[in-house]
Design a protein around this nucleic acid. Sequence first.
DNA 1: AATGAATGAGCATTCATTCAT
DNA 2: TATGAATGAATGCTCATTCAT
Lengths: 203, 203, 203, 203
Amino acid sequence: MKAIDKHSKIIVAATKVFAKKGFFNARISDIAKEAKVADGTIYLYFNNKIDILVSVFDKEIGALVTQTVKLLDAEPDPGKQLEIFVIKHLTAMKKNKNLAEVIQIELRQTNKLIKDYRNTKFNDYLNIVSDIIKEGQKQKIFRQDIIPDIAKRIIFGGLDELSRVWNLSLETNYSVEDAGFQIVRIFLSGIAASETEGKFPPL
Amino acid sequence: MKAIDKHSKIIVAATKVFAKKGFFNARISDIAKEAKVADGTIYLYFNNKIDILVSVFDKEIGALVTQTVKLLDAEPDPGKQLEIFVIKHLTAMKKNKNLAEVIQIELRQTNKLIKDYRNTKFNDYLNIVSDIIKEGQKQKIFRQDIIPDIAKRIIFGGLDELSRVWNLSLETNYSVEDAGFQIVRIFLSGIAASETEGKFPPL
Amino acid sequence: MKAIDKHSKIIVAATKVFAKKGFFNARISDIAKEAKVADGTIYLYFNNKIDILVSVFDKEIGALVTQTVKLLDAEPDPGKQLEIFVIKHLTAMKKNKNLAEVIQIELRQTNKLIKDYRNTKFNDYLNIVSDIIKEGQKQKIFRQDIIPDIAKRIIFGGLDELSRVWNLSLETNYSVEDAGFQIVRIFLSGIAASETEGKFPPL
Amino acid sequence: MKAIDKHSKIIVAATKVFAKKGFFNARISDIAKEAKVADGTIYLYFNNKIDILVSVFDKEIGALVTQTVKLLDAEPDPGKQLEIFVIKHLTAMKKNKNLAEVIQIELRQTNKLIKDYRNTKFNDYLNIVSDIIKEGQKQKIFRQDIIPDIAKRIIFGGLDELSRVWNLSLETNYSVEDAGFQIVRIFLSGIAASETEGKFPPL
DNA sequence: AATGAATGAGCATTCATTCAT
DNA sequence: TATGAATGAATGCTCATTCAT
């Protein structure tokens, strides 16, 4: 087995274990067992426990970025692109509960621990949204008074909270379609009824 | 010193310590030291470490619910109410970074551990949003196709992510006013420019 | 309530608690609760936890000594006296499981801790047996080659082990009568069949 | 060093420490220090503190069973066998004070905690005695009215109490020979003088 | 005498990391 | 490269004892 395979195997195993037990409750030996390697072997590929988490996250989110970008390339309309992003995100989170866990929980937990977090692929992912918005503004399809860097956070936050609730089974499991519609509806057209649109003019 | 004072003192201390170190890295002795009581004293008021976290959270969020409800009582218009909620939340999170930490990080971390979490005051807080939306729908001010229980998550998620970024100082610190405007703008009227409104009709 | 009553109440409570949980697992607060006094009150009557145990033991064994001596006074024959002692002991241990526990377990456990243990009433109790043996030897009813101070230990040990097993329910619960007969039989006439008596002559 | 050596080393160390301080007062770190291993190493070989005690006991008593059985194999006469058992037990207890401690004190202390204690080697040891008695009864050398399962307890109890007193140095240290004679005397022929034998007939 | 809140020393157990093989 | 036995620092919680009231 090549070194790269083992590195990969450990990441896959770690993703499962972190998702199941959480970063702090996961033991290195759990990961080693899941990956079918010895405890010590892990330290040949990673510096420490946090390093594993960062790697897990980067790998997963990297794949998501690639897939999402590919989907968007085929669609010129920023509105449609936003819709695609939303559906893709919700679908991915529903399909890959482990990744969802890691994003929603461990990501936050360890932000405090990882100073150079800004460099990870997560920002690439978020910037997909701000880029869509910027393009929409250029095309005069989106309002000019929206600040893309704020909007990307608001949109991601909404998506994230929604899929978090799914994962915890705290509420009825709305379908990706229902939830996707709601979020696209809200972000693109807002909550206001069209006849009252005048009440919320662009400031 | 009355028992209630000591209970309160421990909660205040725990809030500080959890915010600074995170739940898992916080030691009971840290909290005891911060509260100027003996380690054992903490166990006269709380059952265990998680119990402290839940109490911290309930106290803080309970206060926030009270204040927010009071603010909203004076305002009949659901659109304005949503705006008030948004501004109040962002202001509170910016003012009380410890509470923000606890909501954004520890809350998630321990959701898995606390099964009966549904009963805490956090749901009261979220339901303020869905109640506003329901009232708006009744008054035909808000779209009928918005599902309040989904929308409340989307809105909270957006707010939460925004204030999380503030806390981490990951991005330029937009003012509460700027961020509040963005979020009210997006949720109430959506991102779409009014001339393109037709592109995103109610489905 | 007089002081002596409270002292007594605590001893009764402690006997129950020690028997149920064992000395090391018993908490002062358990005893206080059982005795319906405050934790601190216990320290008005006893110096520390071990002091309570010694008091419990002395009180119980003292009562047993009194009762046993009274029973024996009416019986002049040392052989019958030994029988009475045996039956009385087994009956007492079966009736008062708490005392049995304390004798069998805690007594041993704390012997190491209590240096002046020799002074307690337990020796009075054991000496009842050696006194019976000495009297029997004086009357030429018992063998002269038996050393009373060793025999008292052997007899007590046999009785103690037997009632210990009862308490633990490790084996079929033989009746006091059966067990008493066995022990009297063994100690007085030995195990040997009478026709083989010659095989085990006085050495 | 092989794993089995370390396991053994820990048991030897634990025996010393338990004997010196007692089970409840012994700290894991004491045992680790005595065994010259790290605290954590102990948990590679034992599940918990009680597991160590049970192991200590099983190892020691197992060795004693082996040795005793071997000694008895060479002797066909049940009367002599009982004498051999008695002498062997007293000798072993006098030689190995740590084992004596563990049998007499810790064993009792933890019987309450270990429900499946019945399965340990201690029963093998006790059953040596009842087997001897049964064989003696078969050969008509011992009385038929003796119940082997009760007699084994009485005999063990007598032996145990005797060696317990030695260990505590509560009384003059009689020699193994003196004490052995007394106990064999009592158990085989009883206390009664031969001329009064008629006073204690088989019931 | 009585209370019971407060104290703080004490300890079993875990687990990330190392390193001899 | 790979192993997994060994390490030992770290900590939540308990409970005998004290003492202000």
